[in-house]
Amino acid sequence: MAPFLAYEDKGPTQGPASSRQPHTPPVPLVLVHGHPFDRSMWSPQIRTFSRDRRVVAPDLRGYGASPAAPAVTDFSGFARDVEALLDELEVDTCVLAGLSMGGQIVMDCYRLFPERLRGLVLADTFPAAETPEGVRTRDAMADRLLAEGLGGYADEVLERMVAPYASPQVKAHVHAMMTGTSPQGAAAALRARARRPDYTALLARVHVPALVVVGADDTYTPVSDARALHAALPDATLHVVEGAAHLPNLERPEEFDRALAAFLAHVDARRQPSSAPARP
């Protein structure tokens, strides 16, 4: 299904087996954006990490340059799209990172194909299923976006998506992503997301390292949510980004990237073959 997705694929790729270096290459990094954004929300991370590793960032179905049809009707459709894109690009294993709705898609990916994931990055997200009130709210917002478009919504939520004190350039980028999103794609995603499963029990079964990141001033997924997520994961690191709200990777990219770089180095080190001699 996923070759129809628009995506960026940057950085070195592994060549044919006969030309590979004896050392293990860095684990590819795959970045899943949130709602209602597109892959350009990861521009700082694509630029930083593609210098020495493969970085893939898709536009989810209904967002960015990816078509809104066929519409996603089940939340797992996003995860299946990611899996199909990995197949298309011959990415056998990766570190999978997601922010907000993207983090929930990362959890669904772990539910469906954990054997392909070497690490998880869960930014400004939470695992619980939607409440009945939340379902009604998301459905009502879907109706509104179809009727009005995203302009009014973008104006209303901009200074919750990023902190009021964020730079004008960051605010403009975030506002442009929101207003550039297809109302049909956003509405379909809202309805599917409202009916997503609860990933809480899954967290205890995650057997790869995880990095939990949150903006200190995030009001959508506050630090308390990130602490609970961190506590539920068997092998996780928590990083709180001061001076940021719901999009710390754009608001404070240098700090976000330092935390992500340390995590990726940890994942890479776990894959390196041991130099110790084998026991007789």
Score class of each variant (00 low, 15 high):
A57L: 15
R116D: 07
L117P: 11
R160S: 15
Y153T: 15
C94L: 00
V174S: 07
R116C: 08
P67C: 10
D74K: 03
A154Y: 09
V56E: 06
F113T: 02
G119P: 05
E88W: 13
D155Y: 06
V55P: 00
A154C: 07
R118F: 01
V162R: 13
C94V: 12
H175I: 09
T93L: 08
G98A: 02
G77Y: 14
L120H: 04
S50R: 01
M141G: 04
E130S: 03
T73I: 13
M161G: 12
G102L: 13
R54M: 15
A97P: 06
A84V: 08
L89S: 14
Q169K: 06
V56S: 06
D108M: 05
Y165P: 06
A97I: 01
L112P: 01
A57H: 10
A57R: 13
S100Y: 11
L86A: 04
Y110F: 14
D124K: 07
E130Y: 06
G180E: 08
D74Q: 15
A163I: 00
M101F: 10
G151F: 07
V174G: 02
A166V: 11
R111G: 05
M141I: 03
V91Q: 12
L96A: 09
R54H: 15
R116V: 07
Q104R: 03
M107I: 04
A57D: 15
T181Y: 01
A79P: 00
D139E: 08
G180I: 13
E156Y: 12
P164W: 11
V82T: 03
G103P: 02
A166T: 09
L117I: 15
F75H: 03
L122G: 00
R61T: 12
V55R: 01
R118W: 08
A84W: 02
C109Q: 08
L60P: 11
P70Y: 09
Y165L: 14
L99P: 01
T125G: 05
R80G: 11
Q184M: 06
M107L: 03
A65G: 15
M101P: 11
A140V: 10
A97S: 07
A68Q: 14
D108H: 02
L89P: 08
T179Q: 06
R144M: 00
D139N: 10
E133D: 07
E148F: 01
F126S: 14
T137A: 02
F113E: 06
Y165W: 14
L117K: 08
D108T: 05
A140S: 09
Q104T: 07
G77K: 06
C109H: 01
V91I: 08
E90A: 15
V174P: 01
E90W: 10
L158W: 03
